[in-house]
Design a protein around this nucleic acid. Structure first.
Lengths: 130, 130
DNA sequence: CGTTAGGGCTAGGGTTCG
DNA sequence: TCGAACCCTAGCCCTAAC
């Protein structure tokens, strides 16, 4: 196989973070085409960016489920209405509850509506911490 | 601790080998779901299959009980050529030239593997020798 | 058509057990 | 000490939805 496994370098991670801060999470293609990052990420696909961001986000909140802590923190919470470019980092982060899958009501905010960019809390959280 | 370490039986090993020959190495889930083998391997996971195949391959290469100095077994022979994947068990290891990244067809057997991921040389070798 | 979100799978390193 | 069995998870693939 020509590409055994392409590990992410520090530079690539940084570029990805910067890209997310600049364009917002979910804008993988946009980040990729941004001349500011394309030099570093030129051998990554938009899907790669998405996957890497997912991994980074997981690490950012759970920090290693080394142990047995079945955290399963499936925060499917979406942030209430928010624009692409400006990440609402000023939101208060609700303390982690034992949220049992939010199939029940428990909408975070007053705007559960049609649909939104699907910005997960952990992503913003990571953004916050980076 | 509740996990007494389940040693592989001869039947299981045979089923695994047959599965690899039929579906190709790397298709652990496929092998596991194949009714032909699921009866024998029903208490193994796809990861178990992968791990067992790794051990078997190592032994087949003779690296097993001789010197651990072979850290260089970091295979992935970066041979400029192909030597990629060839589950051409029905014919000899074909030596076609293969472009680096292409997802060219090249189906080998009548059972077209939609796409063959990494088939490492040692695996084929083992397959060949078994 | 192109893109993204999310689930699923594998590869490979690491760890445990015998 | 060594090796087989098992765990962890980054990276990658597949698919649906749009």
């Amino acid at each position: 196989m020509g590409a055994p496994k392409q590990k992410w370098t520090q530079e690539e991670e940084s570029a990805l973070k910067s890209g997310v801060i600049k364009h917002g999470p979910g804008k993988w293609r946009t980040i990729l085409k941004d001349p500011e990052f394309s030099g570093v990420l030129y051998l990554r696909s938009n899907v790669d960016l998405k996957d890497k961001w997912r991994n980074m986000s997981v690490m950012a909140n759970g920090w290693g489920s080394r142990e047995k802590s079945r955290l399963a923190v499936k925060r499917t919470f979406s942030l209430p209405k928010q624009e692409e470019n400006s990440l609402a980092l000023t939101n208060s982060l609700q303390s982690d509850e034992e949220n049992v899958d939010a199939t029940s009501g428990l909408q975070v905010s007053s705007n559960p509506p049609p649909r939104r960019p699907n910005v997960r809390l952990e992503m913003c959280l990571f953004c916050f911490l980076y």
